[in-house]
C-alpha cells in the first residue's frame, strides 16, 4: 500500500515509465537541496509534489527539465536519460513557477516561436485550440505585460502545451491565482489526464491536491519523506473525526480517551464533543462506549481525514 520511498523504486528506464527519478541529489555549494530523491511516475496519473517553501520542489523540476544539472543520480523520461540528447525535452511540457516576460512579442508570436523550437512549422490550429480553451483568444495580440496575472499564468500553460507533451510539469501554477481560475485550471489538468497525459505538479493548496492527485509525494529539506496514493496516505496518517452535538451539557467531568475537544454549542444550551477516532475503530462501539442516551444526542457527524493532516503529520514527525 503505502510505499517506503527509500527502497521502493527498482532501477527502471522503461519507455513505459513517464518519469523515473533515481537517487537524485543536488548541492548548491555545501547546501544539499535534494537528497537521493527516488520515485517513478505512472502513465496517465496526476502526481502532486508537496512540501513547504524551500523543500526542493523547484530544484527537482529544474533537474527534470535540464535547467539544473543534478549533482548525482539519473533522471529518465520515457526511458531516455535527461541531459543526453533532445528527446526528453520533446516529451516534456513545463510551466515554470515564475511568469516569463517575453518583451516585445505578443501572445500569438510567443506561441508560434515556441512551436518552432519544437520543430513545428505551422501550428496555427493547435495554438488557436489552446487559446480558445484557456480564454486567451481575444488577447492574442497583447504583450505579456498587458495581460492580467491570471492571463499570464494561462499563457505559460498554453506555451507548455503547444507541442502536446506526454509529460506535463507544473510548478505552482496556481500560486496567487483566484479560486475561480484555480478551479478551471484544475479542470483543465484533469482533461489533459483524461487524454492520457501524465502530470506532475507542485501546489500549496492541499485541499485541491487531495481532490486532484492520484498520488502525492511529500518533500522536506530535499528528502522525499513520504509517497503513496493520496487515499492510502490519508487512511494511514490521518484520523476520522466524530462530532457529537448534545442536547444539553455533557456530564461534568466527562472524559474519554478519544476526546479531542469539548466546546459549547453556539446559541443553545448544548455541548459539542469532537473525537479523534483511532484507525479501525467501529463507529457503533465508540458511541456505545460514551454512554450517552440516544435522547441526549442532537446530531452526529463524521469528518474524513485530510491531506493537510497527512502533510502536517509527516512534517512534524
Amino acid at each position: 500500500m503505502n510505499q517506503d520511498v527509500s527502497k521502493s523504486v527498482p532501477v527502471q528506464k522503461s519507455a513505459d515509465i513517464p518519469l523515473s527519478v533515481q537517487g537524485v541529489s543536488k548541492y548548491y555549494g555545501e547546501f544539499k537541496a535534494l537528497d537521493k530523491v527516488e520515485f517513478n511516475l505512472e502513465k496517465g496519473e496526476i502526481f502532486g509534489l508537496l512540501g513547504p517553501n524551500g523543500a526542493g520542489k523547484t530544484t527537482l523540476i529544474s533537474a527534470i527539465v535540464d535547467l539544473e544539472k543534478a549533482s548525482s543520480g539519473d533522471i529518465f523520461v520515457f526511458g531516455e536519460k535527461v541531459g543526453r540528447g533532445l528527446q526528453t525535452k520533446r516529451d516534456i511540457g513545463f510551466v515554470p513557477q515564475e511568469v516569463i516576460n517575453h518583451g516585445y512579442f505578443n501572445v500569438e508570436e510567443i506561441l508560434t516561436f515556441h512551436s518552432g523550437f519544437y520543430g513545428i512549422r505551422n501550428n496555427k490550429k493547435r495554438i488557436e485550440e489552446l487559446l480558445q480553451r484557456l480564454a486567451l483568444w481575444e488577447h492574442k495580440n497583447k504583450k505579456v505585460k498587458q495581460l492580467s496575472g491570471g492571463m499570464k499564468r494561462r499563457l505559460m500553460i498554453a506555451k507548455a502545451l503547444v507541442h502536446t507533451p506526454k509529460l506535463f510539469l507544473l510548478d505552482e501554477p496556481t500560486a496567487g491565482v483566484d479560486i475561480e481560475l484555480r478551479n478551471s485550471l484544475w479542470e483543465f489538468v484533469v482533461e489533459l489526464k483524461n487524454q492520457g497525459t501524465t502530470v506532475l505538479l507542485t501546489t500549496h493548496y492541499l485541499e485541491e491536491a487531495q481532490e486532484l492527485c492520484d498520488r502525492v509525494g511529500i518533500l522536506r529539506n530535499g528528502v522525499l519523506e513520504k509517497m503513496g496514493h493520496t487515499k492510502d496516505l490519508i487512511d494511514e496518517l490521518s484520523n476520522r473525526k466524530l462530532v457529537i452535538d448534545l442536547n444539553g451539557k455533557a456530564p461534568s467531568g466527562f472524559s474519554h480517551p478519544c476526546l479531542e475537544k469539548q466546546e459549547k454549542l453556539e446559541g443553545v444550551d448544548g455541548d459539542r464533543l469532537v473525537f479523534k477516532l483511532p484507525k479501525g475503530t467501529e463507529m457503533g462501539s465508540i458511541i456505545n462506549s460514551l454512554g450517552f442516551s440516544l435522547d441526549s444526542i442532537k446530531d452526529i457527524q463524521t469528518e474524513e481525514g485530510t491531506l493537510e493532516e497527512v502533510f502536517l503529520s509527516v512534517l512534524n514527525s
Binding site: L67, P96, I100, F117
Partner: peptide
C-alpha cells in the same frame, strides 16, 4: 542579457534545440 532578466533564456534550455 534581457533573456536572463526576463527568464526567456530558460526556455532555450528547456526546448529541444542544440
Amino acid at each position: 542579457i534581457s533573456g536572463k532578466f526576463s527568464g526567456d533564456l530558460e526556455d532555450l534550455k528547456i526546448v529541444p534545440i542544440h
